[in-house]
Design a protein around this nucleic acid. Structure first.
Lengths: 123, 123, 123, 123
DNA sequence: GTGGTCTAGACCACG
DNA sequence: GTGGTCTAGACCACT
């Protein structure tokens, strides 16, 4: 389902959160899809169940998944809203970076060029 | 000189580093300008001198300033190189964010629009 | 694991950095090997944990180790690159010393002889 | 006579010591040559006289110069011995570096090649 | 338990 | 006065 990288400086629970959120945001996991149970995912990833528990808690808080007691965890059905929210967030970040670049002397052409550039890693 | 925001999740020493680096990168502090002494800046910001010391150490490692025992800390004269390096970095980040936005369905017009948007905070 | 020499003019944290870096460079500590925790090594060497923390921070910055909160510190897997970089550095130092020796009148035979000599301490 | 570089991490008095010692070692300043007075050199270099005083003290301790009270400071006449001592020192350093390089896998050819290489800075 | 940040206070070397 | 190192002890986040 997802991969965790122990060299990644991000805490493990955050890698889990980001991984599942991304799958949900880009539609790879449709609404009401059941995701692995805490124990099962913990086994798969060889991780402490507490860590998965924490990740699922955060995902629920964000509205990405919902928990049905005794039945499991499922992808939320309002991903469209969350996706739009995420896009706004990305937009704000790009805007801030662009402003900073201008301060350092980058011109508009260079900025536009970056939109096509494939970055090394995410921000 | 700079401000510390205690609600900012970044550690204090990092806020100091970023603050001074930005001033140097955009030329507000010319080469060989002396910056406040460790103790003085610690007083101004009501921060422990060790924290400032750590920030200055990091700035020296990055080549933003150079230190001379008994004399003080000064802005480096290779800010042009560092500025270009920073721009490359920003470019990569924008590229990554743009790619992610496309995955979520944003079209080119929207991406270009973000370049003008003023973001809430940096990334 | 390593030893501290209080008569060594180098600061303690630097001795720790050099000691561990050397072990990693010559392959005595393979990639992904876990190294002693900050507190544990501090106990072993009878040194303040903050000093070890600083050394580990420097090692991480150099790419010799990577740290994961709550799990520990581990040897990086790019030691091959770092080893080559270190060799280049040694080469430059030897070149500079050789040039200086020539200025003082040493001939080529003498220089070549030094390559076999076992020095008292490092440079 | 000599130059001091404020960006150099070495303390100023050490730059003065090294500078004069080098001139004496390679014969640029013959035996019994008078060197500038403390005050005069301090003026020339725009440096605190105390700093020059300290440098001269160190040079005298090393046997590079001798002070004649009321008459000034002069280059020692045993530079031949000091030069030989310095060469031994360089030899030991090269030997140590070579040994370290071998540990990291450098072969003899590479080591010999470094003797010709011009290093970026001194060691 | 782990690493990471911060404070407080001391001591040293340099100018 | 300056920067730099070290100790002691506290608190936080992560597993």
């Amino acid at each position: 389902m997802i991969k965790i990288d122990y060299r990644d400086p991000r805490p493990i629970y955050e890698q889990v959160v980001d991984g599942i959120e991304e799958l949900a945001l880009r539609g790879a996991l449709p609404a009401d899809t059941q995701i692995p149970s805490v124990r099962q995912l913990a086994m798969e990833l060889s991780i402490n169940p507490n860590t998965i528990q924490r990740a699922y808690g955060e995902l629920e808080r964000r509205g990405v998944i919902y928990a049905a007691k005794g039945r499991g965890n499922f992808i939320s059905d309002n991903m469209t809203v969350l996706r739009e929210r995420r896009l706004e967030e990305i937009g704000a970040q790009i805007g801030a970076l662009a402003a900073q670049a201008r301060t350092l002397g980058a011109d508009e052409d260079r900025l536009r060029g970056w939109l096509q550039k494939k970055g090394v890693d995410g921000a």
